[in-house]
Simulated assay, not measured.
Amino acid sequence: MLTSRIISRSSKVATATTSRLTTPVRPKSIYSIRPITCSTKLYKEDKRQPNFASRALEQTEDDHEGAFGRTDNTIRIEHPDEMEHPPSKPIQGRGGLHFKRTLASFTMENRTVIVTGGARGLGLVMSQACVISGADVAIVDLNKDEGQRQADELMKHFQEENPGAENVPKVTAHYCDVSDNESVKSTVAEIVKVHGKVDHLVTSAGFTENFDAIAYPPDRLRKLWGVDVDGTYFFACEVARHLIDRKAKGSMVLIGSMSGAIVNVPQPQAPYNAAKAAVRHLASSFAVEWAHAGIRVNCISPGYMLTALTEKIMIENPDLHKQWTSLIPTGKMGQPEDLMGAVCYLLSDASGYVTGADLRVDGGYTIT
C-alpha cells in the first residue's frame, strides 16, 4: 500500500514540473513525502467527528443497519411432540411409467435403502424417490405406525402408477430410537433379516427448535444432539460395518442443512446449527475413512423447505416466512420434491466418483 502511494505522488510531482516550463522547479524526492500518520491533531479531529463505524455503533434498536442480520431472542419454537406432528403425504404424479429417457446409472433396482426419519417430511419424499428409482426401502421412524402407513401408501402408489409392473419395490417400516446405539444395532439387524442386505443409507432423522442459547433447556439440547448427531453417527457406522462384513460397495447420504454453513436469522438456533455442521463434517470424515472399502458418503444440505411442519410454523409466524424468502435469491422456499433428484444422484452409480461432497439445495441462500 505504501509503494502505490509513493508512485502516485511521484507522478503528480513530475506532471507539475513539466507544466511549469517558465519557472523550473526542482521536483521533491519521493522519499520526502510525509508518511501516513496518527498524530495527536488528527486523533482529536476524529474524536470531534466520529467515523461511520463509530456512528453505526450508536444506532438504536429501531434503526435498520444490521437488523436483518441478527437473531431475535424473543422467537421460541419447540419441536412438537410425536402425536402433534402433522402427517405428510406422498408426492402425487412423480412416479408412473418412465417414457423419458435417462441415464441407466441412476437406477437403484436390486438395492435396499434405509431412510431414517422416513415417515414424514423430507425423509418420506426421499423414500419415495428411492422407490420410484426401483429400490427396496426400509423406513425407520420413532413412530412405527405412521411409518407402516406410509410404507403401504408408497407401495400402493407405485402399483397404481405402474400397472403390470413385474418388479414391485418392497417397502417396510421399522421402529428405532436413533439416539440409542443398541436400538440402532437391533433395527439394522432386523432390516437385514427382512430385506437380506442393505446397500444405501439416508439419515433424515433430525429436528430443530428455537431458543436463544442462554435459555436453551439442557435436556432439550441433549435430545437434539442425540437425534441429529448421535443418530447420524450410529446409523452410518452400523451400515458401514454391515457393508464391510459383506465386502460390498455402498453409498450413504447424510442429511445436513445450510444451517451447518451459515447462521440463520432471525430465529436463534445455535445447537441445531452446530449439529448440522457436525453432520457435514462427519460425511467428509467417513468418506475418507471408508473409501478403501468402496463406501461413498456424501451430504445434502437443504435450505428452507416447505414441509407440513414448516408450513404450520409459517402460518403461526407469518413474519418469519417474509424474512426468510427475502434472503433467498430465488425468492421462494424449496419444495420437498426438490430433493428427489439430489438423493437419487448421490446414492446411485451416477455419482460413482463423488464422495465427501456437500450438495446444497437452498435456492442460493448460502452464496449471498
Results as ranks from 00 to 15, higher is better:
Gly147Glu: 06
Gly147Pro: 01
Gln148Ile: 01
Arg149Trp: 01
Gln150His: 07
Asp152Tyr: 02
Asp152Val: 09
Glu153Ala: 14
Met155Thr: 12
Lys156Gln: 13
Lys156Ser: 07
His157Asp: 10
Phe158His: 15
Glu160Arg: 11
Glu160Ser: 11
Glu161Pro: 02
Pro163Phe: 04
Gly164Tyr: 09
Gly164Ala: 04
Asn167Met: 13
Asn167His: 15
Lys170Gly: 05
Val171Gln: 02
Thr172Ala: 09
Thr172Gly: 02
Thr172His: 04
Ala173Ser: 08
His174Tyr: 12
Tyr175Ser: 13
Tyr175Leu: 06
Tyr175Val: 05
Asp177Gly: 04
Asp177Ser: 06
Asp177Glu: 12
Asp177Ile: 11
Ser179Glu: 09
Ser179Gly: 12
Ser183Cys: 08
Ser183Gln: 11
Val184Ile: 12
Val184Leu: 05
Ser186Phe: 03
Val188Glu: 08
Val188Ser: 05
Ala189Trp: 06
Ala189His: 11
Ala189Arg: 15
Glu190Tyr: 10
Gly196Glu: 07
Lys197Ala: 15
Lys197Trp: 09
Lys197Cys: 10
Val198Tyr: 00
His200Gly: 12
His200Pro: 01
His200Leu: 07
Ser204Asn: 06
Ala205Asp: 12
Ala205Pro: 02
Thr208Gly: 13
Phe211Tyr: 15
Phe211Asn: 11
Phe211Arg: 10
Phe211Asp: 01
Ile214Gly: 02
Ile214Asp: 12
Tyr216Val: 10
Tyr216Phe: 15
Pro217Ile: 04
Pro217Met: 06
Arg220Lys: 15
Arg222Val: 14
Lys223Arg: 15
Lys223Cys: 09
Leu224Lys: 03
Leu224Trp: 09
Trp225Cys: 10
Val227Thr: 15
Val227Gln: 10
Val227Phe: 06
Asp228Trp: 02
Gly231Asp: 09
Gly231Gln: 06
Gly231Tyr: 08
Tyr233Val: 01
Tyr233Met: 07
Phe234Trp: 14
Phe234Glu: 01
Ala236Lys: 07
Ala236Pro: 00
Glu238Ser: 08
Val239Gln: 10
Arg241Asp: 04
His242Arg: 03
